[in-house]
Design a protein around this nucleic acid. Structure first.
Lengths: 344, 344
DNA sequence: GATAATCCAGAAAGCGGTTTCGTTGTTTTT
DNA sequence: AAAAACAACGAAACCGCTTTCTGGATTATC
């Protein structure tokens, strides 16, 4: 039912090679035959088999997408999914489709051998989206000949690059904003200490406090187990249990912030009246909470787009490692108390 | 650097066919050579090339995922993304990976020819996720020999099936709940009248009103342009502008409900005190709104899982068309006023 | 002990493309 | 007018795997 290249060749009365050359824009074909064959291709609706092409050329026009790490990052992740969405759009514009490897046990091996799977499919490149508890097979892939771009994941392979927001600067912006609002006792709620992202944000936070000569109270620095809401709730409860609360808190993700607000509400502690909160990421949900969540916006669109562009470059020009840092932006809503002070 | 079947054959001192047979569990291989070759495969980390296998067998072990329609449905859709997540998990368990076709213009044609792309990649099956304004090429795919499952999309091809929640019943449950709470003046906010889903929900709603002998006031039945928040906001504003409001409203999606609540809040109309609201889908955001959004939960996990299972069956047993209807469930939170009446 | 049945394994064609290299006929150069 | 250059196309090998068919060795059957 579906045509193959031989059919087209026969219909056009030319050889298979000629058809192939026309498809691939070779120059040694006359305009005449070219237009004639192209016409036939259009009429028949012929599309070349991707597997045959891949087999012959080693290039599949496919980009592998991997949710790295064993923990909880998947399609439902509000931040990464937006990055992915933008990535997909841009990659589509560049002529690539996306393939998602299932995290489930891979048939042959006990463990998830990403490199093997990428080779298996001849992907042209890979997007690695960071989770926690990275498998060792991630670094295998990083160090392979397959171009890789990490999102929130520092890759170091010769054919790799990565992109993330300027996590250090985020904290500076938050601290400065809190400072401007008159808050002097500042705290930080992070993910686990295994998260590099969270650690950078924390160190940026501490540095900013130092620079402004603000006190650093270790009771106000607490890590949870991940970036999710439940962890924010639980961590905030611990801080509340400790007794002494800071005047304002930076949570390393909006979900952590939302969880923290839930804990505060439960203890009848008002936000931002008693404790102000700023989250991070600017996920959809920021618009639905009460109070609306002030946050550090990560430019997810830009991150996804640039990731695609970087990967494209890596694939087509093998231009060594590179990394991009995207400027974060403070989005002022209600949870920081700026509006109450007419500062918005 | 990567091994191919010939390398394995050479190392093992057997023929290529023998290796292939071992990989594919043919019976005419002695236990001896089998274990020996398998050992070598393990050691070398050999994985067969998918394109070669696909080329030879016409089966790629790939499932195509398509966001149908030209409008606004992508990875950021809170409902579909959860279905997709569950689908991906189950499909992974069944040994399939997912490929996402970019919506962007396909190189060869002006229009997005889904069938061609599926053939191009030799996908074993397809998941079609409904949007609005379906392209004609969707029905081409539906009627092709490629197994397809539609989510919220009635497919009718010989090798197709579909799955959706029992949209009619949803409305029944909502109306009954409203009735129980003493509300008699009920309204409905839907998507556009082009959405079959929305229309079913509306007719279910009307039917339930009839059955209970409740009044049907056309001013209380308004459609927006889609299922998104902005549409809910705008539609609610129109209803408010009309003057006379119902006591309770069923919105055809949570996002519509959230938009409606925003409009109500803006007009200082209390929820649920003056107007009660129930949404639909049970997306994450329901937990973040004030008041918390009572909703009809669609079992997204189940929908995704069953979609995978149905597709698997279609692929492996070509067992004709089938459809599944999944039971919806009322999730009582705050926006319906049940708790205020001690009815939760 | 001859024949049939069974077990294992390999040869080879084929899947649908790509790409190198060669061939032919035409044009240009000198 | 002969030589060189070029334009346009095709033959064929190859990519890595599957699968049918064939055949030799071993075992069972009479």
């Amino acid at each position: 039912m579906a045509y193959n290249i031989k059919d087209i060749a026969k219909i056009a009365g030319v050889s298979v090679s000629t058809v192939s050359k026309i498809i691939n824009n070779y120059s040694d074909i006359s305009e005449d035959t070219k237009t004639r064959v192209q016409q036939i291709i259009k009429e028949t609706g012929y599309t070349p088999s991707n597997s045959a092409k891949t087999l012959a050329t080693k290039s599949s026009n496919l980009i592998g997408v991997i949710f790295a790490g064993m923990l909880n990052v998947d399609f439902t992740h509000p931040f990464f999914i937006e990055v992915l969405n933008s990535f997909k759009k841009q990659m589509g514009l560049l002529g690539y489709d996306l393939i998602f490897f299932s995290n489930e046990k891979f048939q042959s091996g006990d463990t998830n051998d990403y490199l093997a799977r990428c080779l298996h499919f001849n992907v042209d490149g890979c997007l690695l989206i960071s989770g926690q508890e990275l498998e060792t097979s991630i670094s295998e892939l990083d160090n392979s000949s397959i171009p890789c771009i990490g999102v929130d994941l520092k890759l170091s392979g010769d054919n790799s690059g990565y992109i993330m927001s300027d996590n250090f600067k985020m904290s500076t912006k938050v601290v400065e904003h809190f400072y401007l609002l008159g808050y002097r006792e500042l705290g930080y709620i992070g993910s686990s200490s295994e998260s590099e992202i969270s650690n950078i944000r924390e160190s940026g936070f501490r540095k900013a406090l130092e620079d402004l000569g603000l006190p650093i109270n270790e009771n106000w620095f607490l890590n949870g187990s991940n970036f999710f809401e439940a962890s924010g709730y639980e961590t905030m409860r611990r801080m509340i249990a400790n007794g002494n609360l800071p005047r304002a808190i930076f949570a390393a993700s909006d979900q952590l912030a939302i969880g923290a607000m839930r804990a505060l509400k439960e203890s009848s502690i008002t936000v931002p009246g008693t404790v102000a909160i700023i989250g991070c990421d600017d996920i959809e949900a920021c618009n639905y909470t009460t109070p609306l969540l002030t946050t550090i916006k990560q430019n997810k669109d830009k991150i996804g787009r640039l990731a695609a562009l970087m990967l494209y470059d890596l694939i087509n020009n093998q231009s060594g490692t590179s990394s991009f840092s995207v400027e974060p932006e403070l989005i002022i809503r209600e949870s920081c108390g700026a509006s109450e002070r007419g500062l918005v």
